[in-house]
Nucleic acid binder design. Sequence first.
DNA 1: CGGGCGATTGAATTACATCAAATTTCGTGG
DNA 2: CCACGAAATTTGATGTAATTCAATCGCCCG
Lengths: 223, 223
Amino acid sequence: MHAHSSLTPRPLTAAIAWRDAGGIETDRLRLVGVTRDYARGKEIFGEGEKAEFVYSVIRGAVRAFRVLADGRRQISDFYLPGDVFGVEPGADHGGSAEALCDTVLVVARRSVLVDEGDGAMSRRLWRLAIDELKRCQDHLLTLGCRTASERVANFLSDLAERLDCGTTLELPMSRQDIADYLGLTIETVSRCLTQFQVAGLIKLHGCRTVELCRPRALGDLCE
Amino acid sequence: MHAHSSLTPRPLTAAIAWRDAGGIETDRLRLVGVTRDYARGKEIFGEGEKAEFVYSVIRGAVRAFRVLADGRRQISDFYLPGDVFGVEPGADHGGSAEALCDTVLVVARRSVLVDEGDGAMSRRLWRLAIDELKRCQDHLLTLGCRTASERVANFLSDLAERLDCGTTLELPMSRQDIADYLGLTIETVSRCLTQFQVAGLIKLHGCRTVELCRPRALGDLCE
DNA sequence: CGGGCGATTGAATTACATCAAATTTCGTGG
DNA sequence: CCACGAAATTTGATGTAATTCAATCGCCCG
């Protein structure tokens, strides 16, 4: 893919659905807008910027994060194809977002999320927020309670499930990204992966491709 | 207060507002229902239970948490007077909630949150979820990046602000609760507090009362 | 006043971080 | 297609913040 950051002049309309958590509410948020390419590492929006647009991932992946004054970074979530992000109730973005790899997004004006008077849009936004909150609470449990190995095992299991990629997982993010997501260092992440490989749980084919040899055993490690 | 857990026969109507994050949307959620007393430590709802009711704190405090299979516990949030909690889009509660101390709640059937057709209720629920998400992401930053001292300092500053109590803070929770909230042990929490006391930042009057002597310096510790 | 639980303090241990190479991966140009 | 070089990852040695284990203290409540 030849990525560039300018608004592409493609007036393409894309309809995006995301995972349905329950089964009660079949109503999903659909985002209509233009597609736009972001090169690896490019900023999508920054903390404190006006939240003018909302986004949905078509291809690639995105990291959402905040940084402390001294540069320590916490990645709160990775967004994958089908995910919607950047939706804020306030005027400004509370965190930053960057493309992990060359990435294609649907970008829509925030105003497309306005209600048609029936409250359906607000209900979709509520669902979106609650689903993200649930993921955030899971993540909190991981950072507060789990050991390094459990964190990495849980990360691999979760990512494999979200990418729906069978047993061979293509990591869109670097070790540094994984470390900043899991509250560890790159060295510790690396050691955990080799430890899993030695134990026969995974097999690394280059550092971005992970084959899950015993996904069940990996899942058990997560507690 | 003489707390008990049975539904009190007081058909009191309480209207509860919570903190407004922005300034744009002045519309706040109000919960109408009966009040109910919970003794210290009593369960309000458990993980996996049907989410039949929603709650608002009148007096006291509540811990929301999840536990791993082996008993490790992560407290995701404390709810204080004015806070609304227990609102779920799905059928079941994703976590548990217990009273930290003798506590009075407004309990309302979930059905009171149904829209009147104008989407106003869904918008309020969205705001509620987003505000909780923001708090959760702050918490994530703490658990992923900060040292033990920074966590405890941040915890004290945040709680003092939320309780709006000036410089003398009455802790509604035990050291174990603080530890499980911050991803630390009780010993580490205790050591941080004495360290702050030695440094002249706080003064402990019994283990539940904290006087913030230099709140600014404490805030600076949070990064 | 005395019993018991929660909190504090101290000593030893450890999981993870830090510091410092060695090695692999991968993009780029010959 | 292969070789080169920079960047990312892995591996090893050492350091340390926080945990664990073990008393002791002190606050509360009968």
